[in-house]
Design a protein around this nucleic acid. Structure first.
Length: 257
DNA sequence: ATGCCTCAGCTCCTGAGA
């Protein structure tokens, strides 16, 4: 079973690239973030033709998430139950016995801002909910655009960006609280190239200079960890014309069928 | 550096992203 996550920064603009990527990378599950479109505009037909069913949670202009799967989904849940939120950031479903959560974590803008405070509240709510989910569904994958780096290895300029958004100790403490639930950073279970990032600013030739951050993650639960056989970041779509600023991340699980 | 790109929308500028 292969799963992937990709912040596409407008599905309207990126749909052809998503279809191309799926054709070349026929994963079983793809979590999408930043659709930037409403449910009525979600391209169900295009994904059906590509062999995927979709559950979407759209929103106008900002946010919006979806899950694409080859097998049927059950128990689809939108956002974090019990956490009032105007923004469409989370969609979860059970696929082939695995609980899959796709999430677009808040950006936070700047430490000390209202948006940062919202990010902290959201992270706390996510933690409580995921803890409950793990009890009911030990085989769980939490993947998406976390908008948080784990440590300096995830940052192209750890000195210059120290304590800036995505790199603060407060954000990282929330990320560690998630891993403390028994979740594992899939990418670091395997050797990776030096300076592996999943996002690069559109400006200043950041991709060409590999000035990026690793903020898109796939966390797998204790129960799934022994079955993880690979995890990688696919930089190829970032080289497309009109790319998303994020690259997809893929994980492979060896699960009995 | 109040910049740099990119996207959506009450679209020819602004807000937000990260």
């Amino acid at each position: 079973m292969k799963l992937a996550t990709w912040n596409v920064n407008s599905l309207t603009v990126r749909l052809p690239q998503v279809l191309d990527w799926l054709a070349a990378n026929p994963v079983d599950v793809l979590a999408l973030q930043e659709l930037k479109l409403t449910d009525e505009k979600f391209p169900h037909d295009a994904f059906t033709a590509a062999g995927y069913q979709a559950e979407c949670f759209g929103q106008k202009t900002y946010n919006g998430v979806a899950l694409l799967t080859r097998s049927p989904m059950s128990a689809v849940v939108r956002n974090i139950p019990g956490f009032e939120d105007e923004m469409a950031r989370v969609i979860s479903a059970t696929v082939n016995g695995v609980r899959v959560i796709g999430a677009y974590f808040p950006n936070g803008q700047e430490p000390g801002s209202d948006k940062f405070a919202y990010k902290m509240r959201w992270l706390k709510a996510l933690h409580g909910w995921v803890a409950t989910e793990l009890l009911a569904s030990p085989k769980l994958v939490l993947m998406g655009d976390y908008n948080i780096t784990f440590d300096d290895a995830d940052v192209w300029d750890p000195v210059g960006l120290k304590d800036s958004i995505h790199c603060t100790e407060e954000e990282r403490a929330h990320l560690r609280a998630l891993t403390a639930l028994g979740l594992h950073d899939s990418l670091r279970l395997f050797p990776q190239p030096e300076k592996s990032y999943s996002w690069w600013d559109y400006r200043d030739f950041a991709f060409r200079r590999n000035r990026g951050l690793r903020i898109d993650h796939i966390l797998v639960s204790d129960a799934l960890k022994p079955s993880v056989s690979a995890c990688s970041i696919d930089k190829a779509p970032r080289k497309n014309e009109r790319p998303s600023d994020h690259a997809p991340v893929t994980v492979a699980l060896d699960l009995p069928h």
